[in-house]
């Protein structure tokens, strides 16, 4: 666990991205080929279609320490598999509501339509998202969880300490 104080000073958001193979992943490749420079905070997982994005993946990413999750798919009507992106859109709309109730800001989870030709959009979306998440500050669920879990560890220590004199 890095020192939380230090962390705040140079907060670099960690963003997990799920990019569809046909549009957004290709666009990210295009951004690379075009040497467009963008923030290094986003790590991409390639999937075949945004329809493959299971809401569990998004929750798992947050639970494992992501500060943001970005999903990139083909524009509506352009899905390589005809309608996978619509399926994702519907899940995303409800998941956003769930996340909101669970205290995760809207800007931390983002769905973007980026076609294969929109290398520059990859850049702008990533930079914009990194900036917005940076402003929100760290989400750091694992750290928060371990802070809360300290309370039960304390008791454990106490029991171990007290047991001997009490029952001896």
């Amino acid at each position: 666990m890095p020192n939380p104080e230090k962390k705040e000073k140079k907060f670099e958001p960690k963003i997990v991205a799920f990019f569809c193979n046909w549009c957004t992943y290709t666009a990210a490749d295009l951004a690379g080929v075009s040497r467009l420079k963008y923030a290094p905070n986003v790590r991409v997982i390639r999937i075949m279609c945004s329809g493959r994005v299971d809401p569990q993946f998004i929750l798992q990413a947050f639970a494992s320490g992501a500060d943001g999750v970005l999903i990139g798919g083909c524009h509506p009507g352009d899905c390589h598999y005809s309608e996978g992106n619509y399926k994702m859109l519907r899940r995303f709309r409800l998941l956003q509501r769930v996340l909101k109730v669970l205290g995760i800001a809207e800007e931390r989870c983002r769905l973007e339509w980026i076609s294969a030709s929109e290398g520059d959009k990859v850049k702008t979306v990533i930079n914009d998202m990194v900036e917005k998440v940076r402003n929100l500050g760290p989400l750091s669920i694992p750290a928060k969880m371990s802070d809360i879990d300290e309370e039960i560890k304390e008791l454990e220590k106490e029991i171990n300490r007290e047991e001997v004199p009490q029952h001896a």
Partner: peptide
Amino acid sequence: QIFSEIDGLLKFAG
């Protein structure tokens, strides 16, 4: 496979 990819990306981030 995807869950472990997510974890791999993030655990390392710290």
